[in-house]
């Protein structure tokens, strides 16, 4: 305990950042599975929970591995680029914060007989499970910190790729949570998602897109389909976060067209650059040419699926 207090009193901001990032990503990972912490362990009403809790190996893997993997990856990045110290204690803090904010809260609710928490089987068994899990998750964070120090973890990956991967992981989690929540309660069709994204674009941005496409004889529906897709994957508020990120890490993909750049560029500029580089003279492209061009622009399968779907949402085949 004294070691921990001593550590926290001297904690530099570079140790706070990985803790913060790791805890958020771990939380998003569980949100994606609609894991209502910590009822997961006992619930039999949720199919995901049931699937996980039916086997102890699966249960502990699901509980502990995310903390180990996420903390080790984030810490290895920070140790490589910022040479941060006390990896094990930082990892332990990640595990502790995460477990206290989930199992700890549940433990407290059970202790204080709070009605907002469901009780299963034996209350004391449930409490001891939470206490045990707090210890195990904290230890997982500790292991994550230990692993993060090891050189084998990211020996070949350049810094920009690691940054991009962290962002990609974060955004994938957000997207997964978004879609999961959408599909959980009611059936919302792909069309509605595309329609919402399309209608959230501003008139001035669409006007700019039209002007640029006319200037370069580009296929408007194709460029619009990409805007719709990227707007689903990285909505305006996420692009605003990217802008903030650009003050620290300049290189990245920016704007609604997610153009690679060494400095921040806005939605308007990203359309100009993308159209000039990729979509000149595509106004009369055939369906096959459109699909090929899309996969050249971004080969990610999810992107491709939604971009093609958005294109044919806008334009009927025939």
């Amino acid at each position: 305990m004294e070691i921990l207090l001593d550590f926290y009193s001297k904690i530099p901001w570079l140790n706070i950042l990985p803790i913060f990032l790791s805890v958020i990503i771990i939380r998003l990972f569980y949100l994606a599975f609609k894991n209502k912490w910590p009822e997961l362990y006992f619930s039999v009403s949720d199919y995901t929970s049931l699937f996980i809790s039916v086997s102890p190996i699966r249960y502990f893997s699901f509980t502990l591995l995310p903390a180990i993997i996420i903390s080790s990856l984030i810490l290895s990045f920070f140790v490589k680029n910022f040479r941060i110290q006390n990896l094990e204690l930082t990892g332990l803090s990640i595990g502790l914060i995460h477990s206290l904010s989930t199992n700890g809260v549940a433990f407290w609710k059970l202790l204080s007989k709070n009605k907002s928490i469901a009780t299963f089987f034996n209350k004391y068994f449930q409490m001891s499970m939470h206490a045990f899990t707090i210890i195990l998750i904290s230890l997982s964070g500790y292991i994550g910190g230990f692993l993060g120090k090891q050189k084998f973890l990211i020996p070949f990956i350049p810094t920009w790729a690691v940054i991009d991967n962290i962002w990609a992981a974060l955004f994938s989690s957000i997207l997964t949570v978004f879609f999961y929540k959408i599909y959980r309660n009611e059936y919302i069709s792909e069309d509605i998602i595309i329609e919402k994204s399309k209608n959230s674009l501003s008139a001035s941005l669409v006007k700019h897109l039209n002007t640029i496409c006319e200037k370069y004889q580009a296929n408007k529906d194709l460029v619009m389909a990409i805007c719709i897709t990227e707007n689903i994957q990285r909505p305006l508020w996420v692009r605003k976060i990217e802008r903030v990120k650009s003050y620290v890490f300049k290189s990245g993909t920016y704007g609604i067209m997610q153009v690679q750049s060494n400095k921040y560029i806005d939605d308007y500029k990203s359309i100009e650059i993308a159209v000039e580089e990729f979509f000149k003279n595509t106004a009369s492209f055939s369906d096959n040419e459109i699909t090929n061009l899309l996969s050249k622009y971004n080969s990610d399968s999810k992107f491709l699926y939604f971009a093609v779907a958005s294109y044919y949402y806008l334009l009927p085949k025939g």
């Binding site: 674009l201 501003s202 008139a203 001035s204 669409v206 006007k207 039209n210």
Partner: peptide, 8 residues
Amino acid sequence: YKDKKTNI
């Protein structure tokens, strides 16, 4: 499309 400055 419609916003403060532009109508399409």
